[in-house]
């Protein structure tokens, strides 16, 4: 599953990414490293972006980007 499939406030673990190296570097810089935990804090209306907490920071990501981050739910 990707972040897009997750529900608000559920803790997730990042597994990997779709997309190229440049993309991966951008993710990396903002704390989206494989193994880190993340959760969706809120979503903007009108199909807007997601506010995600990852690695102690709050990051806004567009939906197309959220669809590239592969995660699993933490039990």
């Amino acid at each position: 599953m990707t972040i897009l499939d997750a529900k608000n406030d559920t803790w997730l673990r990042i597994i990997g990414f779709h997309g190229g190296r440049g993309m991966a570097r951008n993710f990396m810089q903002l704390g989206f490293l494989p193994g880190n935990t993340a959760r969706i804090l809120r979503m903007a209306p009108f199909h807007g972006p997601l506010l995600v907490e990852v690695d102690g920071r709050e990051i806004v990501i567009g939906r197309s980007i959220a669809g590239k981050i592969i995660v699993e739910e933490l039990a």
Binding site: I61, G62, I65
Partner: peptide, 10 residues
């Protein structure tokens, strides 16, 4: 474009 990535400061 790949879309939005932006840090939200407190």
């Amino acid at each position: 474009s790949p879309g939005l990535i932006l840090e939200m400061p407190v």
